[in-house]
Amino acid sequence: MGASAETLTGKPAPGGKGQVRTFFRRLRNGDEIAHIFTLVFALTILLLACLLVYELYAHSAVSRHKFGWSFLLSRSWDPVLERFGALPFIYGTIVTSVIALLIAVPLGVGGAIFLAEFAPTKMSDGLTFIVELLAAVPSVIFGLLGIFIIIPIMRESVDPFLQSHFGWLPLFQGPVYGVGFLTAGVVLSIMIVPFILSISREVLLAVPAEQREAALALGATRWESTWQAVVPYARVGILGSIFLALARALGETMAVTMVIGGTPSISSSLFAPGYSIASVIADQFTEATGQAYLQSLIELGLALFVLTIILNGLARLLILATTKRGTAH
């Protein structure tokens, strides 16, 4: 007889005729009711995700039909003539994110190596908690600090310094405003360091002790065992943490909007004001008049959404792969 009723995981095992009977019995016990009741709520989550994708897609139809794929490559952003292209914002998003990563990756990975490998456990846990608090600080607060602390510092010290020493690079030419790509990148870097640090630390802590002991037993210094044995073992997971941070940086809105300057232009100078995808949406959405304008902004949102979903998915796969069994070979 197919004795198959309930399991701890709630799924009936295969069992034919017995199943119908047990279904009714479980209905009487309330198990099926509880199952269906919770299922409805779980499916709501699924529905919301589908609805979100659908809404973004449907409400960018005008823009998608009018401009096609050239939307992503056009430089013009002209609300009067209703000609819209995403290139300046894609440029701004990439530039600010790259600056942020250039600063945050060494800082975050370095800090993670210290906390995972060298610091005493108590100190490591304490500092990690503080760093994770940093991740909980709302974006708008970073914007506030950006405006009143970082912009003055950039305008008075950092930008002039870069200009006088590296002014031969096109990156550091042109007038200094204080606001602009570089400042946005710096603010972003502070915001994403905690993610890189705390996840990289976790990945490093998951490296089996034999790895470092093996290197130490061969006469390696502590740094050598860490850099040559532990870090390579965890590299895919560290990469995952960087991807995750990148996804945050791309979608980051308020802090960037408050310090990037707000100009839809592409400039080789990092001192120049610009826009990221998220910040142009934040800035212009409520003022957008006309379907093409509004829907172009929504299409920008769709592009941002697709990008972050891909990055997030990749990041999760990478982190999962290393914390489970380390980087192969």
Binding site: A42, L43, I45, L46, L48, A49, C50, L51, L52, E55, L56, A58, H59, S139, A247, L250, G251, E252, T253, A278, I281, A282, F285, L297, I298, G301, L304, F305, T308, I309, N312, R316
Partner: peptide, 25 residues
């Protein structure tokens, strides 16, 4: 799996995009 994936997806949505979503619906 599907529900977990949907939750992860919602979690990864940039907050500005969430604003657009609620704006449209």
């Amino acid at each position: 799996f599907a529900v977990r994936y949907a939750a992860d997806l919602l979690n990864g949505v940039p907050s500005i995009v969430m604003g657009i979503f609620i704006y449209t619906v």
